[in-house]
């Protein structure tokens, strides 16, 4: 479904701030793969996700999505095939617009936006049903501005928006990092449910090792712009947190103290 071939990305080339964020990364995702991505700060996790989403062009390499070369395609054109949820709950929704308007906008992701009225009566009824399934009571707040919702509600809404029009690829960029533990768990549970129901090919960045093990069928670890560890299937299911932390400290050369904190 997703084929990343040897991509590289260097920020601020030729300056003192030069930083290699991606260093020849290759990754192949089969349809239905649910990959969790871990790694330290600056390992290149978000850069990888943003490169796939088209936020910026890569320096080298190719990106194929569903067999199509999207390397040169700008972000808004790739959006047709990619659903995204961001780390910042503020980023995934339009705060000045109503809940139903946000959903209706998402339903047209990547399509031509013409001069038809956006929220029709029939659509409103359909959106209400979709919101009911979230079980957050948002179906009673369809004409509330999204800016008035809580962070958790917004992330749940963004998840629904990202998946409502079925994407070829769902990108979750530490989408629970800004939430309290209880809400984070709920949003993660909802993510699993949505991924499972729609059989979505998914990449999820997380800083939480337990979550990385618990969710998905494959796990990759990144360090210094490279994928240093890739485990899937049976082997991933038997992976323990202790092993993962050891692997992490081994590959990143950090002290045991840091590793302790991460676990």
């Amino acid at each position: 479904m997703l084929n990343v071939e040897n991509i590289s990305k260097t920020f601020f080339p030729g300056t003192v701030n030069e930083r290699t964020a991606l260093d020849g990364v290759s990754l192949h995702l089969k349809p239905g793969d649910y990959v969790t991505v871990i790694g330290g700060n600056g390992a290149g996790k978000s850069t990888l996700l943003n490169a796939v989403a088209g936020v910026w062009p890569v320096d080298n390499g190719r990106i194929y999505l569903g067999g199509v070369d999207v390397t040169a395609m700008p972000e808004h054109m790739r959006a047709e095939h990619i659903g995204r949820v961001f780390q910042d709950p503020m980023m995934g929704t339009a705060p000045n617009m109503w809940v139903e308007e946000n959903l209706a906008l998402a339903l047209k992701r990547g399509e031509k936006r013409g001069l038809r009225w956006m929220v029709t009566k029939e659509l409103r009824a359909e959106l209400r049903e979709r919101l009911k399934a979230l079980d957050l009571g948002l179906e009673e707040r369809m004409t509330t501005k999204v800016g008035l919702l809580s962070g958790g509600q917004r992330q749940a809404l963004t998840l629904l928006m990202a998946s409502m029009k079925k994407p070829k690829l769902l990108l979750l960029d530490e989408h629970t990092a800004a939430l309290d533990p209880g809400t984070a768990a709920k949003v993660l549970e909802l993510s699993d449910k949505i991924v499972e129901e729609n059989k979505l090919t998914t990449m999820m960045i997380t800083h939480n090792m337990s979550d990385a093990i618990k969710h998905g069928n494959r796990l990759i670890m990144m360090n210094q712009g490279k994928i240093v560890f890739d485990i899937s299937g049976e082997a991933k299911q038997h992976l323990t947190k202790k092993e993962l932390v050891e692997m992490f400290s081994h590959s990143t050369n950090i002290t045991d103290n840091d590793a302790m904190m991460l676990s």
Partner: peptide, 10 residues
């Protein structure tokens, strides 16, 4: 309202 989200919505 939100240029980032708009791009992500195509």
């Amino acid at each position: 309202s939100n240029p980032n989200m708009s791009r992500a919505m195509g």
